[in-house]
Nucleic acid binder design. Sequence first.
RNA 1: GGAGAGGUGCCGGAGUGGUCGAACGGGGCGGUCUCGAAAACCGCUGACCUUUCACGAGGUCCAAGGGUUCGAAUCCCUUCCUCUCCGCCA
Length: 427
Amino acid sequence: MLPRELFRKDPERIRRMLRSRHTEAPLDRLLEVDRQWRDLLTTLEELKARRNAGSKEIGLLFKDGKRDEAEARKASMSRLGDEIKDLEERTSGLEQEVETLELTIPNLLDAEVPEGANEDDNREIRRWGDPPSFDFSCQAHWDLGPALGILDFEQAAKLAGARFAVLRGPGAALERALISFMLDIHTREHGYTEVLTPYLVNSTSLQGTGQLPKFADDLFHIDGHDLYLIPTAEVPVTNLHRDESLDESAIPLRYCAFTPCFRAEAGSHGRDVRGLIRQHQFHKVELVQLTTPWTASDALEQLTGHAEVILQRLDLPYRVMTLCSGDVGFSAAKTYDIEVWLPGQDRYREISSCSNFSDFQARRAHLRYRPAEGGKARLLHTVNGSGLAVGRTLVAVLENYQQQDGSVVVPEVLRPYMGGMELIEPI
RNA sequence: GGAGAGGUGCCGGAGUGGUCGAACGGGGCGGUCUCGAAAACCGCUGACCUUUCACGAGGUCCAAGGGUUCGAAUCCCUUCCUCUCCGCCA
């Protein structure tokens, strides 16, 4: 959510942002409804001021024992009450429309975001590691995994349908090893506090981080309850401090969380239909930082680096992309995507998305801090990113560590987490 | 799921229809005193919205949403949440 004074005083700035994002939003409607709302509100508040004064007088008259005079005043006050009630209904209707509309305006973009229409215009800023060269024809994970007996899509389809997977034996252990490995690095070396949150959240939480009201179709909703399966741990973790004012001395807060994530993938029919890349349910270790306005930008660089460390320790080649204006998500001001090399697909694929949301989520979720030097509470800034998407990391390990005979070498850093296992061979 | 008790400001906790945005205590901030500190004493100390160039003015908020009333933290209804006991369950 953007500050109201911005669209009132500088709507052109928002129009430029929308053009740059190659998107549209009901800004004109918002401006019009906001104008109407404020006009009515002014009138309404005048009436209420009169009622307050009048009621006070009636109270005093009763106190002085002037019953008749008081009763006489009641009649006109009653009419005023009806008038207020009517005007109140219209005013709150307009106010609600303003609130609904402003929730559909995306965040302003950081000045460093390159111009561009879509993902083809994203800019590569660095690369790490060299893609492995195989002297045999390498396989995609959706062939490797089932052949090893550690990955089964058919059984998953029987249980739940398309876009689910069953991991078995060393496959399940590898997933679990990755989760523990990532959490250990982030908590022990990068200073994050691990939290384990609910996997179901209410609509207020989803509005706080920006998934609602605009992206309801991407979510799984629990019938008969105000509860949704989380699409990312970003939602519960960022909302931990919703409606709070933290002490500046506690800032920055760094949280990491392992959760399953659930996505309806409503708009992605036909995309990534094979394999583990795009699932309705997947595991992710998420990094979240709550910072002051001045440190958010550094925090994004730092947090992206924290995610990169995981890939470096696993010796998986990757590159970092700055998303262009047309590809930055609704709530984000700036985003780095980390893309890991997948030999089976002969290309880099997103494995982490790290964003600075400036005060956009904080304004929605009322995340504030009290400055150490005193004064009014200020909005926090939020920064988060995957550290990493676990399923896709498992894919990257399988494909990058495969051998000619179809076995997969276990990366050294994961062996302690897998009872010393060095090689995954067909079951 | 059943029975009961509750949800008030940064915290504790009063307040059952009229100067209540809310007593009192604690905390925090400032001051007096002191070489300094403690203690004591004094003062200040919520958020949001509209309006105004500004000073200021007005409105809203006592879990949330409705209702009664000239007037609601206080009365009524609904929902949510917390706690205790029972049941059930991992």
